[in-house]
Design a protein around this nucleic acid. Sequence first.
RNA 1: GGGCGCGUAGCUCAGUUGGUUAGAGCGCGUCGCUGAUAACGACGAGGUCCCAGGUUCGAAUCCUGGCGCGCCCA
Length: 1141
Amino acid sequence: MCDFRNWRSRSSSFGKKRSIYAKSLEQRRGAPRFVFYEGPPTANGLPHPGHCLTRAIKDLFPRYKTMRGYFCERKAGWDTHGLPVEVEVCKELGIHSKEEIEAYGVEPFVQKCQQSVWRYMQEWERLTERIAFWIDLSQAYVTYHQRYIESVWWSLKELFDRGLLYRGHKIVWWWAQGGTALSSGEVSQGYRQVADPSVYVKLPLVDDPQTSLVVWTTTPWTLPSNTYAAVHPDYEYAVCRDKETGERVIIASALVDSLAEKMRRQWEIEQTVTGGELVGRRYLPPFDCYYQKYGNTQGKLIDDGQEHLYWRVVAADFVTLDSGTGLVHIAPAFGEVDYGLLVTEQQRFDPAGPVPELLCAVAPDGKFTDDCPAYRGTWVKDADRTIIRDLKEKGVILWVDQYLHEYPFCWRAEQDPLIQYPRESWFIRTTEFRDAMLANNAHIGWHPENIRDGRFGKFLESNVDWALSRERFWGTPLPIWQCEVTGKQEAVGSYKELLQKPGVSGTEVWEQAKAANPELADDLKIHKPYIDAITYDSPFAPGARMRRVPEVIDCWYDSGAMPFAQWGYPHCGQEQFRENFPADFISEAIDQTRGWFYSQLAISTMLFGDTHPYPHPFKNCIVLGLMLAEWYESKDGKQRFLTEEEAREALGSNYVCKTGKMSKQLRNYRSPQEIFDTYGADALRWYFFANQPPWSSIIYSERAIRDSIPEFLLRLWNVLSFFTIYAEIDGFAGPREIRGTVDQLSADELACASTYRPVAQRNEMDRWILGEVAHTSAEVIRRMDAYDSFGACQELIRLVDGLSNWYVRRCRDRFWGAAPIAESDDKADAYWTLYEVLLDVTKLVAPFVPLVAEAMWGHLTLGCGRESVHLCDYPQGDMTRYDATLAERMDLLREIASLGRSARMEAKLKVRQPLQRVEVSLADDRHVDWLQEHDRVVRDELNVKEIAYNTGNSPYIEYQVVPNFKLLGPRLGKLLPRVKQALGEADGASLVKQMHEKNRIQLALADGQTIDLEASEVEIRLKARPGWTAAQGRRCVVVLSTDLTPALIREGYARDLVRFIQDMRKQMDCQFTDRIEIFVETDAPELVAAIEENAEYISGETLATALRVNPADGNAARAWATYQIADHDVRLAIAVVSPAP
RNA sequence: GGGCGCGUAGCUCAGUUGGUUAGAGCGCGUCGCUGAUAACGACGAGGUCCCAGGUUCGAAUCCUGGCGCGCCCA
């Protein structure tokens, strides 16, 4: 007998599982590949529940495809570079800034980073094992390994040589005091509300100095670097004459009234123009520091003609009317969109001549440079006040007040405001591939589909060049060496290539470090600072040296290169790459849209777009939803609990249930480890798979996980438990009875057992459930092949429900019979059917719940055949076994039973009370004969003596004929409501009669028109007439006869008695096979009569060898218990006469 | 501010080209079963399908506009 709790803690040894994984691969070698790419997690943080979901989904499909016959290798990978690693190490060292790292020493710092990467490796490996994620950790690719980096280098050299890598500016959030850029995460931590000056500045037109553009800014210090003024080309602008001063200002028409009121001016609109008409007008900037030099400089446009480089009106779609004036001061050095505008302008000019440059009067330390002598050396924020004063004197300030807004400060130095600042950066010209990427994207199978044209497609459409470089330490070094004299650059594709350069030197730095500390990982030699030491002779200038540029690259590039870099391609692994490109399947959470999904697609499109047909590098991607936590907290939010029980204990009813982001700080979720220990990994897996489509957000709720167990896992396990109990009793040893080879225990193999009979010879129930299994297999395959794991789970749930609540429930007595299997075909059939179903179900669920399935396999195979269910083929679903008509009939049978129970409930007649008769009225007569032949189950289920079926007139029901809207809608259109009405008003019975006789209905409408309706165009519904104990469904009505005869009542008493005896058996811990003697004492003659009349039935049900009513030795010492039947006391005692062996 | 997604039972969610009684599980209630038993089963109550317009013979479903929530990006 098996204990359902066993599988919870069941966890076979890692070593054994690994070997089965290896075997599962080995036996598919040479088969078509199913290629899976592992998106590399970072192992320098603890895994959390979200990772469980990704790992579960990533495991499901490879397991499924392997069982389906594909060869699916699963190579693990680790993402190891990047800022998070540096931050961890900084925390450990208690330092923050880049300067501090440099003071500490780049060499020891990088060494620490390399070690830190593996800090939580064990936890990751344990999670991977516990959630039964089959992946080859021993062959994992690691992004800091030399082989990996050289592969990345090769790709960068390709891009460089094709002119796709360039140096430009990137506007970053800059901590001037610390001299470092902050990541967006860091920036968002530091926002707080401040009051900044709000300044409206006049920019007089060059050709009409009495008229000024008006721009608005909250950062006056950016005004010396002003380059353009932007308008929205579609907005209307007003030229307003100030009635007091006579001067004119230009602002957006929509804002004239509100601004005039704010500034207490009286403006009269002289003229309106569109933004487009303003484009090209020149103005005088607020400061002349650059104007003196460039004020009249013109450049040659690519489309012929000349234009002034700076201080013109330009068009920009990002201009809004929400604040300001509808005209925007553009300082490209200090704003990302501003910079974008400059780039757009630059592209209009012929690069042979002068082109607009980035005007930046501020140094990296946040102080003004010589470009702006008036404020030289002043910290920009301190200069604001002086700037406003100077501009006032100059008469170009229209208005000044204060503006409250959120502004970011440095999270490590709270008094330091961040500024947007241009840094030199390397870019990849991804914008050139925008259309190619979109074309590639169009071929990808996204799940859910909307990602393609939605979030991901939209992201691609607004593509900007990839800012590749990072001014950091721990990352893949950018493989570009630069001539110290000419500044000319070249890319290097491998370490070997580097060493072969002429006059190479500097390798000794690494060699010495390694000699001093032999423990150092060899992969470090290709990292900073060792790689920076390597220089060689410049091919561009005699005597000059080539030195590496100092940057490392964005670690997203690392992971995006994994389709080839995991093999070290092209330096090695060319064959592996060819065989494993592109991937059939990847999966990550939605936050990877701009991360790994993009980096992979972008790199692959650029490198392999010309040589490989789309899509690549992945064909299908399941985009997972975010995982949310659920917890309970006190109403003031101060106390938090993970379960409702804990909350209730501590707070009574003063708690609320919350769902929200998972948070390490809040500690609002349970560790996956605890869930595994309590409920088992499969419970978690099944919850993830079966409770919602993977792309909807998932609430990680302990309660929900627990509650999801009974519906499927426990139910399935109980069926197995039922089977094993009786298999033991009857000595049914399935696999051992097979003469011949026992391997996967397929139908062919089972057929070799002497008691196994062809399915066609078995009864309806057996054929039905085997058909259900076949049908479900086919459906599960269809859905899994479409990456619809949720739908597949629904099918499995349906199957197990039918198995447990119909097949086993209705077939129990077949297992209870006394005859040995060898002598009872029916019993043998029951065993072989249930056995085969369980085997197939075990295989079907194996990819979903591998641990439970493996335990089931063990119980079913008794050590015969394949050692693991995971080495079996997935059941294909033998559809010759599926009889659609039988399935429909069985469905109807279940519906009748259900309606019958409903009717009993209404009449308050418990099932133990037998009834003489039910009437079943059906909408049509297609299945009547069959139902009549097979109604034993219904009689049993409803405890009735007879069932009468009818499809004609019945006193209990009336007919309702309704149109088949789907068919008639297109045919009749507007006529349909009238047809519906006419059908409703006509006499249902006569319509049905007409239908039976002519197979069509002629319907007269109110206006005299006649409509001809075919049988398929209407639907006949049944309705119980009021006053009967009846229940109605779509297809039938079940009516109960509630008249009880004395004999029926007595039979009900007997069933009551049986129930009490069974109760006593249970209390006495009787074995299922124990025989007993029953003693009954009662004064009620009708009970005595009932017992005597049904003695055989009572003894049979309770395995009694003797039934003594009011025995002569009534006072003998027995364990009497008193029960009540129909208000009479009944005293009962039982004694075991022959215990089970 | 922009993009994407989501609003369906007390809770968590299904609902496949629009078709007339909107489903499941949990929870709740009533009852049953007691040879699957530290289980199991049935039945029931519970819905303005966020709101308002529109398209249509017909809308939870399609369109438009609101409102609310979430994520991503500014």
